[in-house]
Design a protein around this nucleic acid. Structure first.
Length: 425
RNA sequence: GGAGAGGUGCCAGAGUGGCCGAAUGGGCUUGACUCGAAAUCAAGUGAACGCGCGAGCGUUCCGAGGGUUCGAAUCCCUCCCUCUCCGCCA
């Protein structure tokens, strides 16, 4: 959520900045609602003040043993007026808040201008795509040959966009998770967290998935409505919801491995083959809660933490700064890490690292006490995948494949694979 | 699932219809005392929002949401959460 004060005072400026990402702000409606709100709020509070005064007078009169009937007659009807004013105020505030919750974040100045992903800016590349002296296979073929990746079985169990892994591939998948968590906790200073995979609507509102993107989520149908997390960002970031942190606690660095569940509504026909786009996948997520003046530095650092994983696995990748038109709803700036997939002869997203500045913090009321002012101020939130495990498995399989269809195990994973240097040979 | 207890400020804990945003104690901050510390004494110490150039004024908040009332932390209803005991269970 953007700062309501900013919207009030610099409406045109805000509208212009949102225009950059193709969002049209209904400034007329905001101005109208805002002036209504002001008038009604003032009136309501005056009525409340009057009621409070009268009630005190009644109390005093009663205590003094006086006749309170004249006072009661005087305030008759006040209650109705007040109720009407309150209802009106609730109505306007409801409309304003719905509108505000639907406004995306303002892109940072450094975010390149553009309509869609074709305008994203490549920031740097790491590694050279390997030259194969045999015909490369994609991970689906490799997986089938190893009898370790079974989409038919998953379709029987659940439906499309699910996978079953078996044997060495299942283990390699787990090894990746272990490697990522160990690296982030032991070398990058993140605290490992175990969190709920089902969350309530408040949490999703806090990080920005609700109210606008409900169709992307899976929800339980029982009396208690839970949502399956689409990313660990939701539970982990919401740990600081409604909390005022001590300045000394910042920065907070947390990591969690969780499954992620996404309905993938609107992605029909996209990435239907293989493990790339699934309803359920594993991810190791990094989240940082930082002081406002630290957040862009922290974004660079966090992006670096994700890159380290790719580098240690020897996977070529590039870093892309998303343009204004491709930026997610809550993000002020995002770097996507795209890994080279020989099977597709393309760089594909494997991590997304974003600075949300105070956008999520405001929705969550996540604050810290600034020692300079002594006042609570909103923190900044940053997160990124470190990494998407399923896609990393795909990348390892395709980049490390051998002519005979076996997969050589990257050195850093061997300790998690019981010392195996290759699988499927 | 059954039975019971409870949710109040940073913490503990009072308050059961009216000067209660909330006693008291602890903590914390500042000051006094001290060479310094401890002890002691004094003062201060919640958040959000509105109006105002400002000093300031006002509103809301005692788990959440409704209701009763001139007036609700206090009474009524619904829900959520925590704790104890029993049962069941990975």
């Amino acid at each position: 959520m953007l700062d309501p004060k900013l919207i009030r005072n610099d409406l045109d400026q805000v509208a212009a900045q949102l225009q950059r990402r193709g969002f049209v702000l209904d400034t007329d409606r905001i101005e109208r609602l805002e002036s209504e709100r002001k008038a009604i709020q003032v009136r309501t509070e005056e009525l409340q003040a009057e009621r409070n005064r009268s009630s005190k007078a009644v109390g005093k009169a009663k205590a003094a043993g006086e006749d309170i009937q004249p006072l009661l007659d005087q305030v008759a009807g006040l209650g109705e007026q007040l109720q009407a004013a309150k209802d009106e105020l609730d109505n306007v505030q409801q409309q304003l808040s719905e509108l505000l919750l639907g406004i995306p974040n303002i892109p940072h100045d450094s975010v390149p201008q553009g309509d869609d992903e074709s305008h994203n800016l490549e920031v740097r590349r790491w590694g050279e795509p390997r030259v194969f002296d045999f015909e490369v296979r994609d991970h689906v073929d490799l997986g089938a040959a190893l009898c370790g990746m079974d989409f038919d079985a998953a379709a029987k169990l659940a439906g499309s966009r699910f996978a079953v892994l078996r044997g060495p591939l299942a283990r390699l998948h787990r090894a990746l998770i272990q490697f990522m968590l160990d690296t982030h906790t032991e070398e990058h200073g993140y605290q490992e967290c175990y969190v709920p995979y089902l969350v309530n609507a408040d949490s999703l509102l806090g990080t920005g998935q609700l109210p606008k993107f409900e169709e992307d989520l899976f929800a339980t149908c029982g009396e208690d409505r839970y949502y399956l997390i689409p990313t660990a960002e939701v539970p982990v970031t919401n740990l600081v919801r409604d909390v005022i942190l001590d300045a000394g606690q910042l920065p907070l660095r947390m990591t969690a491995h969780t499954p992620c569940f996404r309905s993938e509504a609107g992605s029909y026909g996209k990435d239907t083959r293989g493990l790339i786009r699934q309803h359920q996948f594993e991810k190791v997520e990094m989240v940082q809660i930082v002081r406002p003046d630290d957040s862009y530095r922290a974004l660079e650092a966090l992006t670096g933490h994700a890159e380290i994983i790719l580098q240690r696995l020897g996977l070529p990748y590039r870093v892309v700064s998303l343009c204004t038109g491709d930026l997610g709803f809550s993000a002020a700036k995002t770097y996507d890490l795209e890994v080279w997939l020989p099977g597709q002869q393309a760089y594909r997203e494997i991590s997304s690292c974003s600075n949300f500045v105070d956008f999520q913090a405001r929705r969550m009321q996540a604050r810290f006490r600034n020692p300079d002012s002594g006042k609570p101020e909103l923190v900044h939130t940053i997160n990124g995948s470190g990494l998407a495990v399923g896609r990393t498995l795909v990348a390892v399989m395709e980049n490390c494949q051998q002519a005979d269809g076996s997969i050589s195990v990257p050195k850093v994973l061997q300790v998690y694979m019981g010392g195996q240097t290759s699988v499927g040979s």
